[in-house]
Design a protein around this nucleic acid. Sequence first.
DNA 1: CCCCTTTTTGATGGCATCTTTACGGGGCAG
DNA 2: CTGCCCCGTAAAGATGCCATCAAAAAGGGG
Lengths: 233, 233
Amino acid sequence: MPEARATILVVEDDPEIRRFVCSALAAEGHKVVESANARRGAIDATTHRPDVAIVDLGLPDFDGLEVIRGIRRWSPMPVIVLSARSREHAKIEAFDAGADDYVTKPFGVGELLARVRVALRHAVRPASGEGALRLGPSTIDLVARRATRDGAEVHLTPTEFRLVGCLAKHAGMVVSHKQLLGEVWGPTHLADTHYLRIYMKQLRDKLEADPLRPRHFITETGVGYRLLADDPA
Amino acid sequence: MPEARATILVVEDDPEIRRFVCSALAAEGHKVVESANARRGAIDATTHRPDVAIVDLGLPDFDGLEVIRGIRRWSPMPVIVLSARSREHAKIEAFDAGADDYVTKPFGVGELLARVRVALRHAVRPASGEGALRLGPSTIDLVARRATRDGAEVHLTPTEFRLVGCLAKHAGMVVSHKQLLGEVWGPTHLADTHYLRIYMKQLRDKLEADPLRPRHFITETGVGYRLLADDPA
DNA sequence: CCCCTTTTTGATGGCATCTTTACGGGGCAG
DNA sequence: CTGCCCCGTAAAGATGCCATCAAAAAGGGG
């Protein structure tokens, strides 16, 4: 049984469409979280921290736009809108609220799945372009979710992967504590800088040649952390 | 200073649609590169290095998919497909060839522009050295929070960065003591001008070729300081 | 139901950064 | 010449952040 390729949140009130979408996603090997209204969607987003969110606009309690804005306050996760509103203005409004894609009903599953693939591509693509990073004796392949050190496979936990992924997306640049905490642990843990220290140590122990003198997982005191990858050039 | 907000490549054979799209993009302040066929599109992509590419699929010489695949061999730039083919299979094929978005004709300009904004949001990966200042032997990259001197990395503390950033925002002009103190240390330290002296010395020691004779961190006696950067022209 | 993995919490020591204090030097006016 | 003001230089103390160790709590799979 292959590990779930990704966690995907589906916020949709129509039970028929929801089942339809979720089973298609599950068939692709994804772990799916379902929410029937905006309030639950917002909660599930923070608790499950999905890799991609699919959000309907016409929800019974609040407008789906509010869900998107709520997510955007703490995470850049890809958001795909799934809506019956086909007017151009609705699309523009959704995009400017932070949506990354917009699919109008009726839609084809194949297209939706393809757009999810694109979103996942964006979510893991590091700044250096390639899927695999080289860090001295170690390599990290974000798309395959694998890491090696001196040729041997190193096991990284989901949280560890999330963290390296977040750092790798901005390779070479400093990523602030708040941003890391928001993307990895959700908006309820923005103050728990402690988690960062612990997981940084684990990553350094697993991937750095000399964990006591890290050369790739650099700490920027008072600001955040930075991942320095070797130039593949 | 209407500097182009981004460079956008439009590969489209229909002259009418091309003019339509390009003028809309230009009106948004973008620099636009136009190509009428696949061969020129592939060439223009490599020579102009656009931030986003908009590609039609039905081109006279080759299929637009080939343009996308060609780009994907060397660049992760966002590619938006603009096509009359509305069949689902065509979309899936385009996405899996590397497209990031798919708009079917007929389309609304507003929606296209919104999708371009989304693509630019994704592309905002200012290659390190893009927003960098050059000061003789040193460089300062404010977005990556990184500084180098003679090619070697120089570490700057948070306040040092805030100070440089404050000076850089008004590069070439005098920034008063009060303004610097207010922006860096807050309104409660407007009188602590000696902070400036201390941190200026640290910056000069770290970044000036001859710290005793500063050429970039200039003191304006009785007024404030000024940052002289080399023209990146 | 139990065990293993993963996540979270707690406590301690060390270090980087910021702040504070002190002294030397040059320009200018009296 | 001398005192004042402003700037540069140096170094020590305080604070808060970070690394590390240790271990309990939560979750998931067999």
